[in-house]
Design a protein around this nucleic acid. Structure first.
Lengths: 181, 181
DNA sequence: CTCTTGTTTCAGTATCTTCTGAAACCGTCG
DNA sequence: CGACGGTTTCAGAAGATACTGAAACAAGAG
């Protein structure tokens, strides 16, 4: 079998996508599976994935499940065969929406809650009589509030984007560029 | 010293911000230092940071430098004292712009280059005679192109945002919400 | 029910990242 | 120049994370 550019290229892409995922707090294997399915012409089953990436069954299974949880890949059933096949969402805009929605839900929302809790804590304990510390506490609270408001805003923005269709997104970006210039 | 709500709250915030950073591919300590400076009323020096977070000099120094590289904190000199003090950018909008700009530069741009390289590779090697593989290669190339275009778009969007001021951003988001609804 | 095929879990292991502490370095002051 | 205060580097240690392989589990077919 000649070393077709296609196959080599795809391998490179999968590897690099995996590395990128790693710097993004996503396990390398998970990102590789995603890249593999994103570039696949037809659905793959667990064994295909294991073979392509040279990983164990347990590893493949765990990461596939995680990708399903994120909503980045889907199960596909075939008539011929009892196996479950997997297929990635290949529309990049859809993918982007999924990722931003999930990140928001998993990472931003919890931190907003923490901030709120921190803010309340400042006043919960009996106040110090030290005027300087009181001043500091005030500034601190203000910073927390600003951060909280900002994160709330990104939350709404993300929700907005999630509701919008692909066409809308393009349009919105055009608008944005006009508004800003 | 009574356990003022302020101090406890701040500790909690720093810890949680660190954890969040960790899931974002930022080292926990780096995120903690950032949180510490973000919530500080006045600039801190390396020893302050070491004491507050209970970390070694080397660790503090490395992570401070990295934060400086990102542009998330700045050096401050004082008259009295030869030490260098550090201070975070505390405007959340400014912070957001810095982060998005840097992430784009460090992570998205390189992956765009890789994609381009992958795309060229497909045709560089002599084509296979297998019609089916040729079909697959074509689909693959198309997906790469879509991804590349998408990432290019986020690049422009990010550049746009980076140029925009705080007021503009607010305005743009309002616009966005109207455009999408 | 039992066999077959396929999926999930998990304890232990390997790998990779981050952190420490000490030593090297740098610049300024006397 | 040498001493001092401060900063950076780095090899090895500690700690966190991801991966394996095998065993448990499920579900459909005979």
């Amino acid at each position: 079998m000649s070393p077709s550019g296609y196959r080599e290229s795809r391998e490179l892409f999968v590897r690099r996508w995996g590395e990128m995922g790693a710097t993004w707090g996503i396990s390398r294997t998970m990102a590789e599976i995603h890249a593999l399915l994103f570039t696949a012409t037809e659905p793959l089953c667990t064994d295909d994935i294991m073979a392509a990436l040279n990983i164990s069954r347990g590893n493949a299974s765990m990461n596939v499940r995680e990708l399903l949880n994120w909503g980045l890949i889907h199960r596909v059933h075939t008539r011929e065969d009892r196996r479950i096949y997997f297929q990635a969402e290949c529309d990049v805009w859809e993918m982007f929406r999924t990722i931003s929605r999930e990140r928001q839900r998993r990472e931003v929302e919890p931190i907003i809650e923490t901030i709120e809790r921190c803010r309340l804590m400042v006043d919960a304990q009996p106040r110090t009589h030290d005027a300087d510390e009181r001043r500091r506490a005030q500034i601190y609270t203000k910073r927390l509030e600003e951060m909280r408001d900002f994160l709330h805003m990104t939350n709404s923005a993300s929700a907005l984007l999630a509701r919008a269709g692909k066409g809308n997104l393009r349009r919105a970006l055009k608008l944005l560029s006009k508004a800003i210039r």
